[in-house]
Design a binder for these strands. Structure first.
Lengths: 197, 197
DNA sequence: TCATGACTTGATTGATCGTTCAAGCAAGTG
DNA sequence: CACTTGCTTGAACGATCAATCAAGTCATGA
């Protein structure tokens, strides 16, 4: 593991735990046992560390997030809820203190430089893209008029909003109720699709 | 307008524009034309300014947010969408750069002191409480089994998630699609309620 | 008239921030 | 051997941070 990898690894964790602004270079150095010169040899600036982190998340969505969550699931709609369940596990394991690393960064960085904002958007796009693929696989169980892209974004919304409230109240049940509402929504959609058929 | 009010007023705007951590005491002083001694006479610390801001939001929800949004609306379900439309206006006016001030703070502050977290939670509770009252007024148009508290929280989720994505993509249509999904959800709920009746 | 207390002034503090860079080190090349 | 190259060392820099406080201002009431 070279210096660059060490820093990215440490930064992924610290940005998630403390946020970007509250993570100092000194934090990264003490965590990695590196000196500042090594860090600045690997990255021109702190923002470039952030960019590296966001690229790593973007490029690792399948292997780090989707594949583990979907290893035992075939049904495309259940894949969606399995992914949400994976986030639930994350919430519980952190005692409701940390949420989605991308969502937190997206709201923390108020005026991000264009490359940073683009990477945040790419992360969201890849996530919703994967969900949209599930919805396409399940298209026969949904009303024909369903806007699958909008519905995929709505699932991201449900996740992020649920995480935000669960974190704020330090109580997973806020997340759970959001998922339950989404389940109701899917039940209604599937019923509507059947009624038309 | 005394020093305390000036600072709260400036802090509400600056925390919204730049976030809490990125707003320095110097920013507040230059905006208010006060000296640091005056600020620290009115508030023991920067965090107490934040607490004052969150209390002001909490106590001003009706007058500052709900009443303006609901002045011309009677239908309880349309009140909900009118409130969401008010947020849409806010998004558009800021060119998708700023979102919900409470939601941003909730995600920016990773380990808030208990009084701060409690105030964030109170703000969310008052918001969802107002929505829940609308849902109660409309209870005859919804299925009997509807969990109105969960549905009210789901509407907050939709708003916050939509704001987050609109901000990240600098594109209101992400917010609009979320609202459209929620409208579909309400249509399905009302249809389900009618079918049972 | 003067004492009191509320509030303001603004220079200053020490800590911490992101960043720099001259110097050093070790492995590889000719 | 000398020389380059890639990387590390860690003290130091200037900027900025939240916070302090002795001194000053001013309205009020005795």
């Amino acid at each position: 593991m070279n210096a660059r990898e060490k820093i990215i690894h440490a930064a992924m964790e610290l940005f998630w735990l403390k946020g970007y602004n509250s993570t100092s270079i000194a934090d990264l150095l003490s965590r990695t046992q590196l000196n500042s010169g090594s860090l600045y040899h690997a990255f021109p600036s702190k923002q470039d560390v952030l960019i590296g982190v966001l690229e790593t998340y973007r490029d690792g969505i399948e292997a780090m997030l989707l594949e583990p969550a979907w290893s035992k699931i075939d049904d495309p709609i259940e894949k969606i809820f399995a992914l949400l369940a994976a986030y639930r596990t994350m919430i519980v394991e952190s005692e409701c203190a940390y949420g989605c690393p991308i969502g937190s960064l997206a709201l923390e960085l108020h005026e991000p430089d264009p490359p940073v904002r683009a990477l945040l958007a790419q992360n969201f796009d890849k996530w919703t893209g994967a969900i949209e693929a599930c919805l396409s696989d399940a298209r026969k169980r949904l009303p024909k008029s369903t806007d699958r892209r909008a519905l995929a974004q709505f699932i991201l919304t449900t996740m992020e909003g649920g995480v935000m409230q669960a974190r704020t109240h330090r109580d997973v049940s806020y997340f759970d109720r959001g998922i339950a509402q989404l389940r109701t929504h899917f039940d209604l959609l599937q019923k509507a699709a059947k009624a038309k058929a």
